[in-house]
């Protein structure tokens, strides 16, 4: 966001880009179609289903170029323009091709104070890319995001719109990258609210018996 304040320029998306996927590729399987039909029936009007269908399309195709958005609109039965508006509104829908794993590092207030930017910069140097870029092997894309709602476990990042990895330290980042390189998904970590800590005897996780929260919270190097 900081760059945008210094240089607030909105570039226009290409108006007639060449399609990435061929017409043969642009089909939903029968199973996916059944799923879409079920979602459509779950909303008062069918347009409610577009977000889930876009999500499904993103999982299937990896990202959402215009022809995929058009496919989802046709499948749901809403105007292409509406689907395109929805897809461009949410940053979690990828309009451009990303790496296999997208690392969304939170740099919003709480994480920033607790070292969100330290983690981001560490990842930049570790992966050899700048924020917003993808590694040459196509494995990692590094992004800076606003609050993901896990301030109690700051600093944190999210892996490809999925798992949260929290209480980040350099060691945990190293471990995460290794895990992802091995093709595994990081472990799920449950979180209770910090104010419940006393009640639970300091164990902030409900899935394990004992857990040591990184307390006191880390502090950003800049702040320190």
């Amino acid at each position: 966001m900081t760059n945008f304040i210094k240089d607030p320029v909105v570039m226009m998306a290409e108006r007639n880009p060449d399609p990435v996927f061929s017409n043969d590729e642009l089909v939903f399987s029968d199973q996916e179609k059944r799923l879409i039909e079920r979602w459509k029936s779950q909303y008062p009007t069918v347009d409610g289903a577009i977000m889930r269908v876009l999500w499904l399309a993103q999982e299937k195709f990896g990202f959402l170029p215009p022809e995929v958005i058009r496919l989802t609109a046709d499948e749901v039965g809403i105007p292409y323009a509406n689907a395109y508006g929805v897809a461009t509104f949410y940053t979690q829908y990828y309009k451009k091709k990303r790496g296999k794993h997208v690392l969304d590092v939170c740099t919003c207030f709480s994480c920033q104070v607790c070292g969100g930017y330290d983690i981001l910069h560490y990842l930049e140097s570790k992966l050899g890319i700048h924020v917003g870029e993808t590694t040459d092997d196509g494995l990692f894309t590094l992004q800076e995001v606003e609050c993901l709602g896990a301030c109690g476990s700051a600093p944190m990042l999210q892996v490809t719109n999925g798992r949260y990895v929290m209480d980040l330290t350099h060691e945990r980042v190293d471990a995460l990258i290794d895990t992802l390189r091995k093709g595994k998904t990081p472990e799920f970590t449950s979180v209770t609210l910090p104010q419940d800590e006393d009640e639970l005897g300091g164990n902030r996780r409900s899935d394990v018996k004992e857990f040591q929260a990184s307390s006191p919270r880390p502090v950003s190097e800049t702040v320190r």
């Binding site: 998306a13 105007p79 292409y80 323009a81 509406n82 395109y84 508006g85 461009t88 949410y90």
Partner: peptide, 27 residues
């Protein structure tokens, strides 16, 4: 375009301070 002429050729793209009305690509 969506309620009167029903051509559905315009939409608001992007979000927040970056948004503006536009045709979807190819339209």
């Amino acid at each position: 375009t969506s309620e009167i002429s029903k051509s559905h050729q315009l939409t608001i793209v992007e979000r927040s301070v970056k948004n503006y009305p536009m045709t979807p690509p190819g339209i």
